[in-house]
Amino acid sequence: KYFGTAKARYDFCARDRSELSLKEGDIIKILNKKGQQGWWRGEIYGRVGWFPANYVEEDYS
């Protein structure tokens, strides 16, 4: 189950295995919004990890 999707506004390079690298334009499935302050958990291309919420724009459609 996921909470919708978000589109990456910027590139983000994961610093460890718990984080999710993003490329601008990627569409991420949002799995959890209750991580550390400002971090969401998501899935993209079969990978799961945490990413900074301010790097994405949530899709409300």
Score class of each variant (00 low, 15 high):
R9S: 07
R41Y: 12
A53D: 04
E58Q: 10
V56F: 02
N32Y: 11
E58A: 10
F51W: 00
R41E: 14
S18L: 07
G46D: 10
E57M: 12
A14P: 07
R17E: 13
R17T: 13
R15N: 06
D59W: 14
Y60D: 15
G38H: 06
K23E: 04
D59Y: 09
S21Y: 05
G38W: 01
Q37V: 13
P52R: 01
F51A: 00
E19P: 04
R9G: 03
G42Y: 04
A14C: 02
N54T: 12
S61R: 13
I28G: 01
R9N: 08
V48P: 03
Y55A: 15
D59A: 10
K33E: 06
K34F: 07
Y2R: 09
I30W: 01
F51G: 01
S18D: 11
Y2A: 09
Y55T: 10
I30A: 05
Q36C: 09
R41D: 00
I28W: 04
R41Q: 15
I28C: 06
S18Y: 11
P52F: 00
Y45R: 15
I28S: 02
V56W: 05
T5Q: 08
R9C: 07
F3S: 11
Q36T: 12
K33T: 07
S21D: 15
R41F: 15
Q37H: 14
Y55K: 07
K7Q: 12
S21G: 07
K23G: 02
L22W: 01
V48L: 07
I30M: 05
L22K: 01
K33A: 03
I44Y: 06
G35P: 09
A53V: 08
N32W: 09
D26G: 00
K1E: 11
Q37F: 10
V48S: 13
E43V: 06
L31H: 08
Y10N: 07
Y45P: 10
E24A: 15
G46M: 01
I27T: 14
E43L: 05
R41K: 14
S21A: 09
S18M: 08
R9L: 14
D26W: 02
R41G: 03
Y45Q: 15
S18A: 15
G42Q: 00
G42F: 00
E43K: 11
W40Q: 01
L31Q: 05
G46R: 04
Y2D: 14
E24L: 02
D16S: 14
Q37C: 13
K23D: 04
G35W: 04
G35F: 06
R9M: 13
F12W: 12
D16E: 09
R15P: 01
G38I: 01
E57K: 08
D16N: 12
R15V: 06
K33N: 03
A14N: 03
I28F: 02
E43Y: 03
G25Q: 00
F3E: 10
I30K: 00
E58G: 07
I28T: 08
R41M: 14
D26I: 04
I28K: 02
L31R: 06
Y10C: 07
K7T: 14
Y55L: 15
A14R: 05
Q37I: 08
L20P: 01
G49A: 06
I28M: 04
G46P: 07
F51M: 01
K1D: 06
Y60F: 14
G49S: 04
G38P: 00
P52N: 03
N32D: 15
C13L: 13
Y60A: 12
I30Q: 02
T5C: 11
R9T: 12
V48C: 10
D26Y: 06
G4R: 10
R47V: 07
E43Q: 13
I44D: 05
R17I: 12
W40S: 02
F51N: 05
K7E: 05
